[in-house]
Design a binder for these strands. Structure first.
Length: 859
RNA sequence: GGAUGCUUAGCUCAGCGGGAGAGCAUCGCCCUUACAAGGCGGGGGUCGUAGGUUCGAACCCUACAGCAUCCACCA
């Protein structure tokens, strides 16, 4: 027997271990159609947050649902080595111990990172278990494991041989703290307060000067020219002359190029080809020297003369001061501008000329764009996110993939010790003659191969041929660029197929004020605390139902509490059903002809719920699906049928046995439908009912049984509900207790045979009489019959009520009349809709006639 | 500079072409043997503004306003 209160701790205990041990999450039943997903591998850098909960719970719901629908489901788990993120954390840890990676050396350092990884992997496993994720541990992968290593090397070498990977000297984003290159999307642009420095540049051979503005004066040591627009009348006469760089006194040419914006600043721009991407382009165009004046820690180098060795900002300060002293500072303007920061170290990124490895993106991106025009496209849910992908693919820069880190896939490029010639190869050459490139690959390079490399590509065939392409991917909109796009182009290029058919996008979980959760705001919510307090099922239900796909949501604790109440409601309904069924109940097939109106009605409604909920589940609309079930559970089942059942059951006859079977069937269906959301409660409740398998994980989803659809029964039962509600309302209005006794009259007949018995119980009627006479108490009029409450009510009140009802009906009739007399409506609206309105019109007119007769008899 | 989303009951949000919904909050009545972490009943919204399309608009289109978010090399 179930406990009186739902105790989540007791319920959760032991179940996950049972499921894993039972192999319920292990894919491989070839007799069923395949359905596959890969988990977005979490970084081995930290603990679970609500973002993971929304992401993985959505996936878990999909997987559990699909298993019930008869699929052989593979949900492949794994983790990401997260190169730069992990290395940054481990380095920070070392720093606190007074160590750094250079002291340890590459090998020792990597040992430390692997220790870190093992520790965090353990934590992540515990968290997956506490969330109840139905992943297949027999297929778990890690982005740095053997198979993925092979895949990464193969991809790198292939792309290199195809000319899609190249080594080049370009301006990249340099993180001076982590001392590595970054790709464009690892740079976060933030608004910073800064200064615009206006310097005077003397024009050689004249007594004129021009004013050039910059936000980064320290880069002036790398300047090779000053540019103006050729159309700019202000400077036309000076173009071709030399100007003096006030930082170092060097003469540099004043040149004209249409790139310069006439409107911006002073219209004159300094050109630093080694420290700015646009200046780099100009430098290439005019064949300038590329002078670097910053080192890898963003300190000034020897080009900065006396400032050599200074930090870039210290240099800026002193340099500006010095220029001011020698009279070449015009003025300083405070500005707010966008400054690039490293995503991981938050350091201000320095654009810098550097030799790195790049992926040539154009051909790969074009293939994605072309493929999205075909039937074989990746289907985004919601569809608008496809544009995010396409926009990015449409103007994507080449991807800088080399990182000056140690933690990651080492680049399979080898340099000849003597000639320096590059050899790119999957296998190691004679290492007495070669040395390997020191750098590792961007972590997203390997993540991009995740859906197929984890399944054995390019070597093992089994899982790859069965489960790839995957069916679906769930992820947040924030990593469409980072990850989704890369999986798509890598997959199209290497497997000739899309990596997944559907991409389901969810939003961010924000705090209750709508702010992003972050460490600095200290507004983060630890899922473990929530689970402790409300149970994991309540958290899962809350986080997957209180939102719309692709839309951000707020974490609101009260809603988790109401989720728990809802589960408690189902718990107690099951407890009731368990109680009435008793220990020796054996479910039997329900004979449609034996059903009472009430039995037939709830079964009919159940069919509709199964159908519409299933449709929403198929469309990944978990919020919609859950609310369909919620309404059914609360209103139709608990408030009505379950209460009605008490009468039938008390008779202990053939009808009560039918009711037991109906209760069983409906309750069981509810449990099966809530189970993907709340697997722990689902399992507990499922096992408490008779005739169960070893676990709800092995069950099938309820299917629609058309023979139980019975509109007539629903209408009749609806009339009973309506009568009960009218009586309750009457009592409330007349300050009577809910259980106050009333006498009822019904004319000319009850809504369906046996209904009075139910009415009696739920209205606390002391008597109910059926009569053919006209009723004259406070009367309620229904379709085909009326009911009056035979209590002493003031004639004036009765009259007022009747008038009120008359007005209401007239309003309704006016509405239907207006619609039905509109020729446009009758000819253009769907016939079913027109019929519906005609029916309402008919019923209301009949009711109005009755009301009018009553009013007439009042005089 | 591009792009997207949001604006609906006091709060948080669903609904996205056929009579305004939920949870929480609020008010009233109930310790009725599944559930007081409950039950029953009520109150509360001209669905951001202005136009347009349609027989019919919260829903589609256009413009505007406010609030978010993403992308972008403006020195």
């Amino acid at each position: 027997m179930l406990d009186k209160h739902y105790d989540h701790k007791k319920v959760e205990s032991g179940k996950y271990e049972k499921w894993v041990k039972g192999g319920y999450f292990t894919a491989g039943d070839n007799s069923k159609p395949a359905f596959s997903m890969v988990i977005p591998p979490p970084n081995v850098t930290g603990k679970l947050h609500l973002g993971h909960v929304i992401d993985t719970t959505n996936q878990d719901i999909i997987c559990r649902y699909k298993r019930m629908k008869g699929y052989d489901v593979l949900w492949l788990p794994g983790m990401d080595h997260a190169g730069i993120a992990t290395q940054a954390k481990v380095e920070e840890k070392l720093r606190r111990q007074g160590l750094n990676r250079y002291e340890l050396g590459r090998e020792k350092f990597l040992e430390k990172v692997w220790e870190w990884k093992d520790e965090y992997a353990k934590t992540i496993h515990t968290q997956w278990a506490s969330l109840g994720l139905s992943v297949d541990y027999t297929r778990e992968r890690f982005t740095l494991d053997e198979g993925l290593n092979e895949a990464v090397k193969h991809v790198f070498v292939t792309l290199y041989n195809e000319g899609l990977i190249y080594q080049g000297e370009k301006i990249i984003n340099w993180d001076p703290v982590l001392k590595t290159a970054l790709s464009n999307i690892e740079v976060v642009h933030k608004e910073d307060k800064g200064q615009f420095y206006y310097f005077k540049y003397d024009v050689v051979g004249t007594d004129e000067h021009l004013i050039v503005a910059t936000t980064r004066p320290e880069t002036m040591f790398g300047d090779t020219a000053v540019f103006v627009n050729p159309k700019d009348k202000r400077y036309k006469h000076l173009v071709g002359k030399k100007v003096i760089n006030p930082a170092n006194g060097e003469e540099i040419p004043l040149m004209a190029d249409p790139y310069v914006d006439l409107e911006f600043g002073t219209g004159a721009m300094k050109c630093t080809p080694a420290h700015d991407p646009n200046d780099f382009m100009l430098g290439k165009k005019y064949g300038f020297q590329f002078i670097k004046c910053l080192d890898e820690e963003a300190k000034m180098n020897e080009k900065a003369g006396k400032y050599c060795g200074l930090d870039r900002y210290e240099c800026r300060k002193q340099l500006v001061e010095d220029i001011k002293k020698n009279g070449h500072l015009d003025h300083i303007e405070d500005i707010v501008h966008e400054v690039g920061h490293s995503e991981r170290s938050d350091a201000v990124v320095e654009p810098m000329l550097s030799k790195q490895w790049f992926v040539k993106m154009k051909p790969l991106a074009e293939r994605v764009i072309e493929n999205q025009k075909t039937d074989n496209k990746v289907n985004f849910v919601p569809s608008r996110f496809e544009n995010v992908l396409l926009n990015w693919m449409n103007d994507v820069d080449d991807w800088c993939i080399s990182r000056q880190l140690w933690w990651g896939h080492r680049i399979p490029a080898y340099y000849n010790n003597e000639t320096g010639e590059v050899l790119v190869s999957e296998t190691e050459p004679d290492m007495s003659k070669y040395h390997q490139d020191e750098d590792v690959l961007d972590t997203w390079f390997s993540s991009g191969l995740w859906p197929f490399a984890t399944m054995g590509w390019p070597n093992g065939e089994k899982d790859y041929s069965r489960y790839f392409p995957t069916s679906c991917l769930v992820t947040g909109y924030d990593i469409i660029f980072f990850w989704v796009s890369r999986m798509i182009f890598q997959s199209l290029h290497f497997t000739n197929n899309i990596p997944f058919k559907d991409v389901v996008i969810h939003g961010l979980v924000r705090d209750s004020q709508g702010k992003k959760m972050s460490k600095s705001l200290n507004n983060g919510v630890d899922p473990i605390d929530v689970i402790e307090k409300y149970g994991v099922d309540a958290l899962r239900y809350f986080i997957t139902t209180n939102c719309t796909p692709g839309q951000d949501m707020r974490y609101i604790e009260e809603k988790v509490a109401s989720s728990e109440s809802y589960l408690n409601k189902i718990w107690n309904a099951t407890r009731y059903v368990e109680g009435v069924l008793g220990d020796d109940f054996i479910p039997s097939k329900i004979d449609k002809s034996k059903l009472s109106v009430l039995d037939a009605s709830i079964l009919s409604k159940l069919q509709k719920v199964i159908a519409s909920m299933g449709k929403s589940m198929d469309e990944y609309q978990f919020g919609t699906a859950s609310s369909i079930l919620f309404d059914f559970v609360y209103d139709d089942f608990c408030s009505n049928y379950l209460e009605f059942s008490k009468i039938s059951l008390s008779k202990n006859d053939e009808g009560s046995l039918v009711t037991k079977n109906v209760l069983y069937k409906v309750m069981r269906s509810i449990i099966l439908m809530i189970y993907p959301y709340a697997p722990f409660v689902g399992e507990e409740l499922y096992l408490s009912l008779p005739m169960h398998l070893d676990s709800v994980c092995l069950e099938s989803y309820p299917s629609v049984e058309k023979e139980f659809i019975n509109k007539e029964a629903e209408t009749k039962e609806g009339a009973l509900e309506e009568m009960i509600k009218d009586i309750r309302n009457y009592k409330s209005e007349n300050s009577l207790a809910p259980n106050a006794k009333v006498r009822l009259l019904i004319s000319p007949k009850e809504p369906f045979e046996g209904s009075s018995e139910y009415l009696a119980r739920f209205s606390f009627a002391s008597s109910i009489a059926i009569t053919k006479d006209k009723l004259d108490g406070q009367t309620f009029i229904y379709d085909g019959f009326e009911m009056s409450i035979e209590e002493d009510v003031d004639r004036d009140v009765l009259l007022a009520k009747l008038k009120e009802e008359k007005a209401r009906l007239e309003g309704e009739i006016a509405r239907t009349t207006k619609m039905l007399s509109n020729p446009g409506f009758v000819s253009k609206a769907p016939t079913a809709k027109v019929e519906e309105e005609r029916e309402k019109d008919r019923i209301n007119k009949e009711k109005l006639k009755t009301v009018e007769e009553k009013l007439a008899s009042f005089n």
